[in-house]
Amino acid sequence: MEIEKTTRSRGRPLSFDRDTALEKAMHVFWQRGYEAASISELTTAMGITAPSLYSAFGDKEHLFLTAIERYANGPAAGFPLALEEEPTAYAAIRRLLLEAAEEYTRANQPKGCMIAMAATNCTQASAHIQAALAKRREAGITGIRCRIECGIQKKELAAETDAARLANFYATVYRGMALQAADGASHETLVGVAEAAMQAWPGAVG
Protein backbone atom coordinates (compact mmCIF):
# COMPACT_ATOMS: atom_id res chain seq x y z
CA MET A 1 0.00 0.00 0.00
CA GLU A 2 2.85 2.37 0.75
CA ILE A 3 4.25 1.92 -2.78
CA GLU A 4 0.84 2.70 -4.27
CA LYS A 5 0.55 5.91 -2.24
CA THR A 6 4.01 7.03 -3.30
CA THR A 7 3.25 6.41 -6.95
CA ARG A 8 0.05 8.41 -6.82
CA SER A 9 1.71 11.29 -5.00
CA ARG A 10 4.13 11.78 -7.85
CA GLY A 11 1.32 12.63 -10.25
CA ARG A 12 -0.59 10.90 -12.95
CA PRO A 13 1.52 8.40 -14.93
CA LEU A 14 2.08 8.96 -18.64
CA SER A 15 -0.61 7.47 -20.86
CA PHE A 16 1.79 6.96 -23.77
CA ASP A 17 5.20 5.46 -24.45
CA ARG A 18 7.70 8.28 -23.97
CA ASP A 19 10.47 6.70 -26.05
CA THR A 20 8.19 6.05 -29.00
CA ALA A 21 6.85 9.60 -28.85
CA LEU A 22 10.38 11.01 -28.66
CA GLU A 23 11.45 8.95 -31.66
CA LYS A 24 8.60 10.39 -33.70
CA ALA A 25 9.37 13.92 -32.56
CA MET A 26 12.99 13.41 -33.56
CA HIS A 27 11.89 12.52 -37.08
CA VAL A 28 9.70 15.62 -37.33
CA PHE A 29 12.54 17.93 -36.25
CA TRP A 30 14.95 16.06 -38.51
CA GLN A 31 12.73 16.52 -41.54
CA ARG A 32 11.21 19.95 -40.85
CA GLY A 33 13.87 21.73 -38.80
CA TYR A 34 13.48 23.30 -35.37
CA GLU A 35 11.47 26.40 -36.20
CA ALA A 36 9.38 24.94 -39.02
CA ALA A 37 8.16 22.05 -36.86
CA SER A 38 4.98 23.25 -35.16
CA ILE A 39 3.54 21.98 -31.90
CA SER A 40 0.56 20.73 -33.90
CA GLU A 41 2.80 18.70 -36.23
CA LEU A 42 4.75 17.33 -33.30
CA THR A 43 1.73 16.27 -31.26
CA THR A 44 0.08 14.71 -34.32
CA ALA A 45 3.19 12.67 -35.11
CA MET A 46 3.69 11.73 -31.45
CA GLY A 47 0.04 10.78 -31.02
CA ILE A 48 -0.38 12.94 -27.91
CA THR A 49 -1.98 16.21 -26.87
CA ALA A 50 -0.12 19.47 -26.33
CA PRO A 51 -0.59 19.30 -22.54
CA SER A 52 0.91 15.79 -22.57
CA LEU A 53 3.89 17.06 -24.56
CA TYR A 54 4.53 19.86 -22.09
CA SER A 55 4.06 17.54 -19.14
CA ALA A 56 6.50 14.93 -20.44
CA PHE A 57 9.13 17.06 -22.18
CA GLY A 58 8.70 20.66 -21.07
CA ASP A 59 8.50 23.15 -23.93
CA LYS A 60 9.38 22.75 -27.61
CA GLU A 61 13.00 23.72 -27.02
CA HIS A 62 13.51 21.06 -24.36
CA LEU A 63 11.81 18.49 -26.58
CA PHE A 64 14.14 19.40 -29.43
CA LEU A 65 17.29 19.18 -27.31
CA THR A 66 16.12 15.81 -25.96
CA ALA A 67 15.51 14.66 -29.53
CA ILE A 68 19.00 15.80 -30.54
CA GLU A 69 20.45 13.76 -27.69
CA ARG A 70 18.50 10.74 -28.88
CA TYR A 71 19.82 11.26 -32.40
CA ALA A 72 23.40 11.49 -31.14
CA ASN A 73 23.00 8.24 -29.22
CA GLY A 74 21.06 6.50 -31.99
CA PRO A 75 21.50 7.19 -35.73
CA ALA A 76 24.68 9.22 -35.14
CA ALA A 77 26.23 6.87 -32.60
CA GLY A 78 28.56 5.41 -35.23
CA PHE A 79 30.52 8.67 -35.54
CA PRO A 80 32.66 8.30 -32.39
CA LEU A 81 32.88 4.52 -32.82
CA ALA A 82 34.44 4.90 -36.26
CA LEU A 83 37.10 7.18 -34.82
CA GLU A 84 37.77 4.96 -31.82
CA GLU A 85 37.69 1.45 -33.24
CA GLU A 86 39.70 1.57 -36.46
CA PRO A 87 43.45 0.86 -36.22
CA THR A 88 44.56 3.78 -38.40
CA ALA A 89 43.41 7.34 -38.96
CA TYR A 90 42.86 6.62 -42.65
CA ALA A 91 40.62 3.64 -41.88
CA ALA A 92 38.74 5.66 -39.27
CA ILE A 93 37.93 8.56 -41.60
CA ARG A 94 37.04 6.23 -44.47
CA ARG A 95 34.68 4.27 -42.24
CA LEU A 96 33.17 7.53 -40.97
CA LEU A 97 32.30 8.62 -44.50
CA LEU A 98 31.10 5.23 -45.72
CA GLU A 99 28.86 4.77 -42.70
CA ALA A 100 27.53 8.28 -43.25
CA ALA A 101 26.63 7.33 -46.83
CA GLU A 102 24.63 4.41 -45.48
CA GLU A 103 23.02 6.26 -42.57
CA TYR A 104 22.09 9.35 -44.56
CA THR A 105 20.15 7.30 -47.11
CA ARG A 106 18.51 4.76 -44.78
CA ALA A 107 14.96 4.00 -45.89
CA ASN A 108 13.14 4.19 -42.55
CA GLN A 109 14.20 7.71 -41.55
CA PRO A 110 14.59 11.25 -42.96
CA LYS A 111 17.55 11.77 -45.26
CA GLY A 112 20.74 13.51 -44.25
CA CYS A 113 21.99 14.50 -40.80
CA MET A 114 19.64 15.89 -38.16
CA ILE A 115 22.37 17.99 -36.54
CA ALA A 116 23.28 19.51 -39.91
CA MET A 117 19.71 20.07 -41.06
CA ALA A 118 17.64 20.91 -37.98
CA ALA A 119 18.80 24.50 -37.52
CA THR A 120 18.76 25.61 -41.15
CA ASN A 121 16.64 28.69 -41.90
CA CYS A 122 16.38 29.60 -38.22
CA THR A 123 15.78 33.21 -37.20
CA GLN A 124 17.65 35.17 -34.56
CA ALA A 125 15.04 34.03 -32.03
CA SER A 126 16.52 30.56 -32.21
CA ALA A 127 20.15 31.63 -32.02
CA HIS A 128 20.68 29.60 -28.85
CA ILE A 129 19.49 26.46 -30.67
CA GLN A 130 21.86 27.15 -33.55
CA ALA A 131 24.68 27.70 -31.06
CA ALA A 132 23.97 24.35 -29.37
CA LEU A 133 24.08 22.54 -32.70
CA ALA A 134 27.21 24.41 -33.79
CA LYS A 135 28.86 23.28 -30.56
CA ARG A 136 28.06 19.66 -31.42
CA ARG A 137 29.42 20.08 -34.95
CA GLU A 138 32.58 21.66 -33.57
CA ALA A 139 32.98 18.70 -31.22
CA GLY A 140 32.77 16.44 -34.26
CA ILE A 141 35.55 18.34 -36.01
CA THR A 142 37.64 18.15 -32.85
CA GLY A 143 37.15 14.38 -32.75
CA ILE A 144 38.35 14.03 -36.34
CA ARG A 145 41.34 16.29 -35.68
CA CYS A 146 42.35 14.32 -32.59
CA ARG A 147 42.20 11.07 -34.55
CA ILE A 148 44.39 12.55 -37.26
CA GLU A 149 46.83 13.89 -34.67
CA CYS A 150 47.03 10.38 -33.23
CA GLY A 151 47.87 9.10 -36.72
CA ILE A 152 50.64 11.69 -36.98
CA GLN A 153 52.08 10.58 -33.64
CA LYS A 154 52.04 6.97 -34.85
CA LYS A 155 53.82 8.04 -38.05
CA GLU A 156 50.88 7.07 -40.27
CA LEU A 157 51.09 10.61 -41.60
CA ALA A 158 54.00 12.97 -42.11
CA ALA A 159 54.94 15.06 -39.09
CA GLU A 160 54.22 18.28 -40.99
CA THR A 161 50.62 17.26 -41.76
CA ASP A 162 48.18 20.04 -40.83
CA ALA A 163 45.70 18.07 -38.71
CA ALA A 164 43.27 20.97 -38.28
CA ARG A 165 43.07 21.67 -42.00
CA LEU A 166 42.64 18.00 -42.85
CA ALA A 167 39.95 17.60 -40.19
CA ASN A 168 38.05 20.60 -41.53
CA PHE A 169 38.22 19.16 -45.03
CA TYR A 170 36.73 15.80 -44.04
CA ALA A 171 34.16 17.43 -41.76
CA THR A 172 33.08 19.53 -44.73
CA VAL A 173 32.77 16.43 -46.90
CA TYR A 174 30.78 14.72 -44.15
CA ARG A 175 28.38 17.66 -43.88
CA GLY A 176 28.15 18.06 -47.64
CA MET A 177 27.13 14.42 -47.99
CA ALA A 178 24.28 15.12 -45.57
CA LEU A 179 23.03 17.99 -47.74
CA GLN A 180 23.28 15.86 -50.88
CA ALA A 181 21.32 13.08 -49.20
CA ALA A 182 18.61 15.56 -48.20
CA ASP A 183 18.42 16.56 -51.87
CA GLY A 184 17.91 12.93 -52.89
CA ALA A 185 21.42 11.62 -53.59
CA SER A 186 21.60 7.83 -53.57
CA HIS A 187 23.74 5.63 -51.34
CA GLU A 188 25.87 4.77 -54.37
CA THR A 189 26.46 8.45 -55.13
CA LEU A 190 27.54 9.18 -51.56
CA VAL A 191 29.86 6.18 -51.49
CA GLY A 192 31.49 7.66 -54.60
CA VAL A 193 31.92 10.98 -52.81
CA ALA A 194 33.48 9.21 -49.82
CA GLU A 195 35.92 7.25 -51.94
CA ALA A 196 36.86 10.35 -53.92
CA ALA A 197 37.49 12.25 -50.70
CA MET A 198 39.81 9.54 -49.47
CA GLN A 199 41.91 10.06 -52.61
CA ALA A 200 42.88 13.38 -51.04
CA TRP A 201 44.35 11.66 -47.97
CA PRO A 202 48.04 12.63 -47.65
CA GLY A 203 50.07 9.93 -49.33
CA ALA A 204 47.04 8.17 -50.84
CA VAL A 205 47.65 6.45 -54.14
CA GLY A 206 45.03 7.10 -56.80
Rank of each mutant, 00 (worst) to 15 (best):
M1G: 07
E2A: 14
E2N: 11
T6R: 12
R10E: 05
G11F: 00
R12V: 12
L14K: 08
S15T: 04
D17F: 00
R18I: 14
T20Y: 01
T20C: 00
A21W: 06
A21S: 09
L22E: 09
L22Q: 07
K24C: 03
K24Y: 04
A25R: 09
V28W: 04
V28I: 13
F29D: 11
F29I: 13
W30G: 05
W30I: 04
Y34C: 12
E35K: 13
A36F: 02
S38N: 09
S38P: 06
I39D: 06
L42A: 06
T43L: 07
T43A: 05
T44G: 09
A45G: 08
A45I: 12
A45K: 11
M46E: 04
A56Y: 02
F57N: 11
K60C: 06
H62L: 07
L63Q: 09
L63V: 11
F64K: 06
A67Q: 03
A67K: 03
E69S: 13
E69D: 15
G74K: 05
P75I: 10
A76S: 15
A76K: 07
A77D: 06
A77M: 02
F79Y: 06
A82R: 03
A82Q: 00
L83N: 02
L83Q: 05
E86D: 11
T88W: 03
A89G: 15
A91I: 00
A91W: 01
I93V: 15
L96G: 05
L97K: 07
L98V: 10
L98Q: 09
E99L: 15
A100D: 12
A100M: 05
E102M: 09
E102G: 03
Q109W: 10
Q109N: 08
G112C: 11
G112I: 15
C113T: 11
M117Q: 13
M117V: 02
A118L: 02
A118Y: 01
T120S: 09
C122R: 10
Q124D: 04
Q130R: 10
Q130E: 09
A134C: 07
A134I: 05
K135Q: 15
K135W: 05
E138F: 08
E138K: 14
A139S: 10
G140Y: 03
G140D: 08
I141W: 04
R147P: 05
R147W: 11
R147L: 12
E149K: 14
I152E: 01
I152Y: 02
I152K: 12
Q153M: 01
K154H: 09
K154E: 14
A158M: 07
A159C: 08
A159G: 02
A164I: 03
A164L: 13
R165W: 06
R165M: 12
L166N: 05
N168G: 15
F169T: 12
T172V: 07
V173R: 00
V173N: 01
Y174E: 13
L179K: 12
A181F: 04
A182G: 00
A182H: 11
A185V: 06
A185F: 06
H187K: 15
E188V: 08
V191Q: 07
V191L: 06
G192R: 11
G192K: 07
V193Q: 03
E195A: 02
E195P: 04
M198W: 01
P202I: 11
A204T: 08
V205Q: 13
V205W: 10
V205N: 12
G206A: 14
